[in-house]
């Protein structure tokens, strides 16, 4: 057993330092990127631009936080972009109900978004765990179901004109930082506590490492799996609200391809695509790297097509470097 899971066999102090080493590697990459853009684009380091980057990465950071749970447990969620659109249009429809007082309508809309997200996530987890089918294909199906439902609910129309009191949150700032980013950061911190300090969190890592071993030791992975995907869904519901409050619209075609950015942030952040290894600190750094890259290249005046090529190359580079880091930490062990 201990040979199969060397991580847990090591003293705690050792494990920590190796995790730190892993995150430090991504941190160095981020610092190098920031230093490069600071030299190449004069406005990059300005306070306004820093604040813009934080706003721009907020939605991806929330989605990536949820995605980390799905990937750590050995799964993946391809439905987050489509489910986000469904959450947004359901929330938007509820918020526009004239029969309700404004505050109640907004509150119910937020609750509905969370509810739809959690329900979709739990359903993903349930189908995948109960019938033992890969979450890759279950969530691919959910992607189509959610997108279709979102179109059906709205008849393909854009919902607009939301209460000002709700829209104000989208662009509000606190201590010079965007409120929505602080919310995303708080969510990430909460997720970090859950993953590192609770039984549920330890079970996620254990299942991601070796599901069979968890089963043989007398635990049922089923509940943990459903719950992990429900957490992914809850994050999607929150991201949808952030979208609506920031852009004041909800349409059924929003969020196309967002799942890919979220997965990229998680993987660049050093979480293993096969599960069991990684952290939310890495995900935070991964999301920042993607955001800084997109922003910095525009500021430098790099054209659209070249920007796309560079972003792709950085993702490939990140996973290649990660394979070296994994080898290094194994040899240290």
């Amino acid at each position: 057993m201990s040979a199969a899971t060397p991580d847990t066999a090591l003293p705690l102090r050792f494990r920590r330092s190796r995790l730190l080493l892993r995150d430090a590697g991504i941190g160095v990459a981020l610092l190098a990127l920031v230093a490069f853009f600071a030299l190449a684009a004069p406005d990059f380091l300005s306070g306004t631009n820093m604040s813009n980057i934080l706003t721009q990465i907020t939605i991806n950071l929330i989605l990536a936080t949820g995605m980390t749970f799905a990937i750590l447990i050995g799964g993946i969620d391809l439905s987050v972009g489509a489910v986000m659109a469904l959450c947004a249009v359901v929330a938007g429809t509820v918020m526009k109900l004239d029969a309700l007082p404004e505050v109640v309508a907004v509150g119910l809309g937020i609750a509905a978004s969370l509810g739809v997200g959690i329900a979709a996530g739990a359903l993903n987890g349930f189908v995948s765990a109960f019938w033992g089918v890969p979450s890759f294909i279950v969530t691919l199906g959910m992607l189509n179901v959610a997108r279709g439902l979102a179109l059906e609910v709205t008849n393909a129309r854009t919902i607009y004109d939301f209460p000002d009191s709700f829209i104000a949150f989208g662009t509000a700032s606190l201590f010079g930082l965007p409120v929505m980013f602080l919310l995303a950061l708080a969510l990430l911190a909460l997720g970090w506590v859950v993953l590192t300090r609770t039984v549920f969190g330890r079970m996620i890592y254990a299942i991601g490492n070796n599901e069979e071993a968890v089963r043989l030791s007398g635990h049922r992975p089923f509940d943990t799996k459903v719950l992990a995907f429900a957490v992914t869904g809850a994050c999607v519901g929150i991201a949808a609200i952030v979208y609506v409050t920031r852009l004041s619209i909800a349409n059924p075609i929003l969020g196309v391809g967002f799942e890919l950015n979220a997965i990229a942030a998680v993987i660049i952040g050093g979480t293993s695509l096969s599960g069991g290894r990684g952290s939310l600190v890495g995900t935070l750094l991964g999301a920042i790297i993607i955001g800084v890259l997109g922003n910095g290249l525009i500021l430098m005046g790099v054209t659209d097509f070249i920007r796309q090529i560079i972003t792709g190359l950085v993702i490939i580079l990140a996973v290649v470097l990660d394979s070296y880091r994994a080898r290094l930490s194994r040899s240290l062990g």
């Binding site: 684009a41 406005d43 813009n52 721009q56 939605i59 922003n295 525009i298 500021l299």
Partner: peptide, 13 residues
């Protein structure tokens, strides 16, 4: 959303 981000960055530059 992409227009929002892209234009924000164009405005910074």
């Amino acid at each position: 959303e992409e227009a929002n981000s892209v234009f924000t960055d164009m405005l910074t530059a």
